[in-house]
Each structure stands twice: as C-alpha cells, then as structure tokens.
C-alpha cells in the first residue's frame, strides 16, 4: 500500500512542471523611424538544422540595434543571439534569448566596437550547438 502511495507521489511530483505568466515587465526594443541602416546579412544554417532570415544593424538615435527579419530556425532550447568576432562562438557579445521565428529586435551594448564583430550567430547555449551564421556587410 505504502509503495503504491510513494509511486503516486513520485508521479505527481514528476508531472509538476508549470510555467506561469510573466509578471515582470519586459523592455520593448524597436527600430524607430529615421534609424540608419549600417550593416546587413543573411543567415546560413549549420549542418543538420534549418535556418534562414535577414539581419540588419541600425544606428538609432546613437544606439546600435540588431533586427532579425523573417527568421525561420529549427526549434531548440536556449537559443541565443550573438554578435561574434568569427563564425564560431568563441569571442562574442550575447544579445539575449532568440525571440523566436519571425521578426525581432535586440539592443547592442554601447561599449561594443561593432567593426570587431562581423558575424551574427544563433547559438544553443545549453548544448553548445551553433544553429545559424550571418556575415555582416556594410550597407
């Protein structure tokens, strides 16, 4: 009887993962009218995954912002958007969690010397697997 009770409790506990509503207000980053397009690029997938989409870097009121357009990337846990010095994630600036397929905008930290980071990567941090690479070209 007690063994069955233990199994029931274990099953109950194992099935308890629940993600509630986000109650912390997120900062909404967007590209304002008049922003100047500085760099563009397009994503190429790494082997075994699908990835496509455009990358645009704007100078918006003295702040650099990165926009991803029409992204279509294979789903994976913990995808990040990196500005990178090379096409591998060794020296990079983490711009945050990939917001998902479609369009999204990311703030670039003010201390970033953009000319030193000619690549944009979509990288699964949890399993250290690179999903997509885009080389930035001066507009």
């Amino acid at each position: 009887m007690n063994k069955y009770l233990l199994i029931l409790v274990a099953l109950f506990t194992l099935s308890c993962e629940k993600e509630g509503e986000l109650t912390q207000k997120e900062s909404n980053v967007s590209i304002l009218e008049g922003a100047v397009l500085k760099y563009t690029g397009s994503f190429s997938p790494t082997s075994g995954v699908n990835a496509s989409g455009m990358v645009k870097v704007y100078l918006d009121n003295g702040v650099y912002k990165l926009e991803i357009e029409n992204a279509n990337v294979s789903s994976a846990p913990d995808l990040k958007v990196y500005l990178s010095k090379s096409d591998t994630p060794t020296q990079y600036v983490n711009l945050g969690n990939f917001a998902g397929n479609g369009n999204s905008v990311y703030l670039i930290p003010s201390e970033t010397v953009l000319a030193n980071y000619p690549y944009v990567l979509i990288h699964c941090q949890q399993f250290n697997h690179l999903y997509a690479v885009a080389q930035l070209n001066v507009n």
Partner: peptide, 10 residues
C-alpha cells in the same frame, strides 16, 4: 513565486 511570476518544476 515572485516578481517574475510563478515557476514550478522537479
């Protein structure tokens, strides 16, 4: 449970 919301897991 806190200012981000509620999260539960094993």
């Amino acid at each position: 449970n806190g200012s981000f919301g509620t999260r539960s897991n094993v």
